[in-house]
Amino acid sequence: MATFKDFRNNVKPNWCPGCGDFSVQAAIQRAAANVGLEPHQLAVISGIGCSGRISGYIHSYGFHGIHGRALPIAQGVKMANRDLTVIAAGGDGDGFAIGMGHTIHAIRRNIDITYIVMDNQIYGLTKGQTSPRSDVGFKTKSTPQGSVEPALSIMEMALSAGATFVAQSFSSDLKELTHLIEEGIKHKGFSLINVFSPCVTYNKVNTYDWFKENLVNLSTIEGYDPSDRDIAMQTLMKHKGLVTGLIYQNKEQKSYQDLIHGYSETPLAHADLQLSKEKFDELISEFM
């Protein structure tokens, strides 16, 4: 059986020391080992950004695509080989700005993949511009007077889009983050895990200390029931989205792949490509 060390590779991340993304990398490696995967059974598909580099820092199959498109690539991979565990990962700009259309539709579609967003409320790779997750008043290179656009309430949006697994975590809490990723992988459908992953270089407001002060862990809310969508929504609104833990999970809903008609139960990638003569003749005769 593989251990988390088997998911480490020889590549040294080019992240700044202290970047929140290191914990996400470690959590994915641990979660993969904990759920019993071998490295070759995992495919990590990532977008573009500091965070997007993550697929190159894990010893597994990895695909580092283009900005904002990790999700459609990941869904394509899963459709092609349902035996693979597929994790999509990227930044808040990647998933909630340029890739927002894909995020909402991946949620709706509910293909069985896990999506981890490293949310630092800023564009890291392009050296510090505002993101859809930046708070009002946040000063960046592109908002020198402070951002006037409200931050997207991403968890609420996911719930409204019909998400079947919604969780949020924080880079400092490796244990919880690992656990949530495991749960996300095990969930039969699309799982969204938003991780507050501080950018120590360009975000001097939403720092580790800031999060420690402002985040509420759902385990501290008595009787919180993640199967209740109403309560999930209310709790998010009450705490302005600053909660961590498993926010909502619908275990009843079948995944896209289990719902569509005719779809192969074995990996499509192993299918025979040759049409039989009978099938061919049948198709041809329809045009005669």
């Binding site: 283009i66 459609p72 990941a74 869904q75 394509g76 991979v77 092609a80 005719g262």
Partner: peptide
């Protein structure tokens, strides 16, 4: 009937990248 599928995506960027993902994975 052949075990395959068609996904109507949200746009052509998704269509093309999804096709790339699926081809990468061997279909």
């Amino acid at each position: 009937a052949l075990g395959g599928a068609v996904i109507q995506t949200e746009d052509e960027i998704a269509a093309c990248t999804m096709a790339i993902g699926a081809n990468y994975a061997g279909v």
